[in-house]
Design a protein around this nucleic acid. Structure first.
Lengths: 236, 236
DNA sequence: CAAGCAAGCTTGTATATACAACTATTGACA
DNA sequence: TGTCAATAGTTGTATATACAAGCTTGCTTG
C-alpha cells in the first residue's frame, strides 16, 4: 500500500473541474452550494468552501454572496505570460550569462521619459546601458532610466556583478509593473552592439516598475528577433 | 460614522505588507508564526493563517511546513503579462473589430506541425486563416492548425461571427496554453495582407492550447510591429 | 564523540459552530 | 394589483478545537 492520501478538498476540486471540462456544467451554470457539497461529500462546510474558494481564485468559478456559485465564462479567461529576468532565463537554459556595462551616468532627459517616470520638471535621471550575453553572444541590450529621487546610490553600482533589476528590487521593493512588447527595427548603434543587420527585427520590451513611493524605473530591453523569444507555459 | 469595517485578516495582511515594503523585513526574514500573529492581533489562529495564506498565494511569502513562514525573494518574483483575445482587446480600446475568413480547409501538414499538435502520423489537420481588422485596418493575421480528432465541426464554422478562439473554448474547454513571442520579418504574402512593407518587423505570437484530452490547436498570430503592441498592467 | 531518538515547534487539514451580509422569493397587506 | 416586509438560502468572516505531518533542537545513549 503506497497510495498517497489525497486531501478531501482536493477531491472536491477535481470533481468540479471534471464536471466543467466534460461540459456537463456549462458556462454560468449554478454550482452546488457549500452546504450541498458538504453533505454530498460528507465533509464540513468549511472544507467544501475551500474547494470552491480555490477554484474561484483560479478563475474557474464566480461567487456572489447571497446568490451562489457559478461556472465562469470561458472567453473571459485570458492566459498569462510570465516575464522573467534575462539572467534567470539564461541560467535556466543551462547557459552562461554575463553582462557588460556600457554607460552609467546622470542625464537630462526629454519630456517623454519625464512623463513616463512621473517626474515634475526636467529633473536629472540616472541612465544605464547594460549588454547581456548568453554564452558570449550578445542577447539583450538593457537601457534603463531610473528615478534619482527614489534610488540614491544607483551610480555607484557595478552592474556586471548584480543586474540593475536585482539592485532595484533590493533598494525599493517593487509592487507593480507595466509592460509593452513591440517588434521594432533597432537603430544602427544598437544593431552593432547586438551584432545583427540593421534590417533584422528586434523584440523590444518596455517595462516600467513601481514601488509604493512611485515609478522607480523605465527599462527598454531590446533583443534580436532571430536569437531571442519570450516563452512561457501557463495555466488559464 | 460611515467608516467601513475592515476584516481582521485584511488588517494583518496590510501590517505584513507594510513591514515588507518599508524594508523592515528583508528577503528571507522569518515572519511571525500563525500562533504569534494570532496572539499579537487577538484573533484565532485560523484568521492569522488566512492572512499568511493569501500573501503566500500572491507570492510575497513562502511557507514551509515545519520550519515557518519567510519573506519571498524579490528577484524570483516574475511579473505576469496577460495575453488577450485580439477581438476583446480592440473592443476595449473602443474601436471596431471585424474579421475576414481567408481560408478554411483540411490540410496535410508537415512534420513540425504534426509534432506540435502531438499527432501520430501525418493525419489531416484543419487549417484556417483569419484576418482581423481594427477600424478597417488589418491588424493581425491568425493562422491556425486544429486537431481534427478533438474538434469535429471546425470546418463548418463562420469565423466572421465568432472567433476561432471563442469557438474552440466552447467546444473543448481549454486548460493550458504555451506561448512564444518573436519578432520576425513576415513573408511577402503576409505583408501584402497586413498592408506593410516586407522590411517591416512583425510581432508573432505562437500559441498552443490544450484541453484535458490533448493539444487542441496551434495558432500563429502575426501583427505589424508599427501598429500593434502587447501591453499590460499587472501586479508582481 | 556520534548516532539516533524524542520533544516541541511549525504549517496543513478538517470539523462544528456562530453570526454577519447579501439576494431572491414568498406572502401579507394596502 | 402593487408594494413592502418577512423569510429562507447563499456566501463571508471568525472562533475554538483536534490531529497530522514536517523540521529543528537538544538530549540521551551506546
Amino acid at each position: 500500500m503506497t497510495q498517497v492520501k489525497t486531501a478531501k478538498f482536493t477531491v472536491i476540486k477535481q470533481h468540479i473541474c471534471q464536471k466543467i471540462e466534460s461540459g456537463e456544467w456549462q458556462q454560468h451554470a449554478k454550482v452546488p452550494s457549500e452546504n450541498e457539497l458538504a453533505e454530498q461529500f460528507s465533509v464540513s462546510r468549511m472544507t467544501a468552501r475551500r474547494a470552491l474558494q480555490e477554484l474561484t481564485e483560479q478563475g474557474l468559478l464566480i461567487r456572489s454572496q447571497g446568490s451562489g456559485t457559478f461556472v465562469a465564462t470561458f472567453k473571459s479567461q485570458s492566459s498569462l505570460l510570465e516575464i522573467r529576468n534575462i539572467a534567470d532565463e539564461i541560467q535556466e537554459r543551462g547557459h552562461q550569462h554575463h553582462a557588460k556595462q556600457l554607460t552609467l551616468k546622470a542625464v537630462a532627459v526629454n519630456e517623454e521619459i519625464t512623463i513616463l517616470l512621473n517626474l515634475k520638471s526636467s529633473e536629472t535621471v540616472y541612465y544605464s546601458e547594460v549588454l547581456h550575453f548568453e554564452n558570449d553572444q550578445p542577447i539583450q541590450l538593457e537601457q534603463r532610466y531610473v528615478n534619482s529621487v527614489l534610488v540614491k546610490n544607483y551610480l555607484t553600482q557595478d552592474f556586471t556583478k548584480i543586474t540593475p533589476h536585482e539592485y532595484l528590487s533590493s533598494e525599493a521593493p517593487l509592487t507593480e509593473a507595466t509592460h509593452e512588447i513591440e517588434a521594432v527595427l533597432a537603430d544602427k548603434n544598437i544593431c552593432q552592439l547586438l551584432n545583427i543587420e540593421t534590417s533584422s527585427p528586434c523584440l523590444q520590451v518596455k517595462r516600467r516598475t513601481w514601488s509604493s513611493k512611485g515609478v522607480v524605473s523605465l527599462a527598454i530591453l531590446t533583443s534580436p528577433g532571430n536569437k531571442y523569444r519570450l516563452g512561457s507555459h501557463l495555466i488559464f
